[in-house]
Design a protein around this nucleic acid. Structure first.
Lengths: 254, 254
DNA sequence: TAGTGGTCTAGACCACTTC
DNA sequence: AAGTGGTCTAGACCACTAA
């Protein structure tokens, strides 16, 4: 029965996966686990820390170590960008906040508008000099109380100056969202390139997204092009990985 | 100067990001750090464990705590599936192993062929009953010594029986790879649907992919369809997140 | 306010790897 | 063989929160 922290972690993991501790339930108290396995409580704590890093549990003071529920993942397909949605002039349309699956409510989404110097990725995407000033529209999107992702859009100043896109009023952009406004200015989005990768969050990201330990983030970068191939928007999103899956359907190229 | 493990972790992280400890270099010895910050060595160890979980460092015995290099990410676009590559009858073509960016060498790739019962995702994708037997072609793909991803393809038995696809000989499938064989059997791949998400690895996955702590995996599931809409292959890949980025370009739907 | 997890100190011993 | 990180024990005290 005496064993190392890995053994304790393995035993707990197996019990969780066997359904002995279903999602939302709590593990036995740490000192009970310690007694059962005949180890010091610090060894149990290390085992729990291991499971936490794996994303299986989150210890909560005074409540115990709770088994994390796997929330249903939202599947994001390209249809979320469909023109019909913004061309109908729907007030409050936003493909980005659609990602959270619920309609907009005041306080849902914070946003800041600012002129910032373009970093390398932005500069390359928008075809401006690195360090040149671009408009940044940054928002934190929530599903109820829970933040799900941050998203920052970048525009060339001459494209969006004096449009609702750079109006710092909270809430959806009137006129069919950002894409609606671009369309009405003669820059209708036609094509996109999205790039996805994943890593562990920075402490800053973990804080703003309220991420439990052991939850990675997925980074989505997209370029939006007009029909003549000009990139009119670059966006970068940081998503809580457990909440999203992306789906793409395509013809196999020749 | 006396401080908690978070402060120590913050200081080390800041120093790493400021370039004081470049990728590949090692941090000072743990007891030196402890002395500098006037804390117990166990506090330092906890701080280092934190940075490890963030994917920033990997402690190696006798060598010290080394700052992880960020290997260049391989960008995977849909052109890796281009028909011209397998239709030319290229020996040894494999879009999946292209993902590692180097030509095939013996010992690079292990593979196993087996008949397995279909899990729910496989069954749904291939339109068979859950639990029905399907062919599984599973491989571990390496870039040199380093495993980069596992990939398992699933086929309906009647589609691939007695073809090179289910021949357990190591190495690339003769006849233009799996897609080439399917094409020659009148099931030419035309369209794909790929779905991507991310999570922390299971201990098993961490072992087979030799993942350092703090490295997430990305799960890619794809369905391959013929022109008449029949799904002839379902595949599931588990990728070391730090090595891959996926890119998709698409028209914005109406 | 009691009970749970969180942090820190202290010290012994182990394990691996480079020299 | 020496030096680095890894694990375990032991005990004190802190911090948050549900009752």
């Amino acid at each position: 029965m005496a064993s190392g922290y890995r053994d304790v972690a393995d035993a707990l993991r197996a019990a969780i996966e066997a359904g002995k501790y279903p999602p939302g339930s709590t593990l036995p108290k740490q000192d009970e686990i310690a007694a059962r396995h005949e180890v010091n409580i610090h060894t149990v704590r290390k085992a729990v820390a291991q499971l936490e890093a794996e994303g299986l549990v989150t210890p909560i003071r005074r409540r115990g170590t709770v088994v994390r529920a796997r929330p249903p993942m939202r599947r994001l397909g390209t249809e979320r960008y469909a023109k019909s949605r913004w061309k109908a002039g729907i007030i409050g349309f936003s493909a980005d906040r659609e990602a959270s699956g619920v309609p907009w409510k005041p306080g849902d989404q914070t946003q800041t508008i600012a002129k910032v110097p373009a970093d390398d990725a932005i500069a390359k995407a928008l075809d401006v000099e690195p360090g040149a000033e671009v408009y940044e529209r940054a928002r934190l999107v929530k599903d109820g109380d829970q933040p799900t992702h941050t998203l920052a859009s970048y525009y060339r100043p001459e494209d969006v100056e004096d449009t609702p896109i750079v109006d710092p009023t909270p809430g959806p952009i009137p006129g069919g969202g950002g894409f609606g406004v671009l369309t009405s200015k003669g820059m209708e989005p036609e094509r996109m390139t999205e790039t996805i990768h994943s890593r562990m969050p920075t402490p800053e990201e973990a804080e703003t997204l309220e991420l439990p330990a052991g939850e990675p983030v997925m980074i989505l970068e997209r370029q939006t092009f007009t029909a003549d191939g000009r990139c009119v928007e670059f966006a970068r999103g940081v998503h809580a990985a457990s909440r999203f899956a992306w789906t793409y359907t395509f013809q196999i190229p020749e």
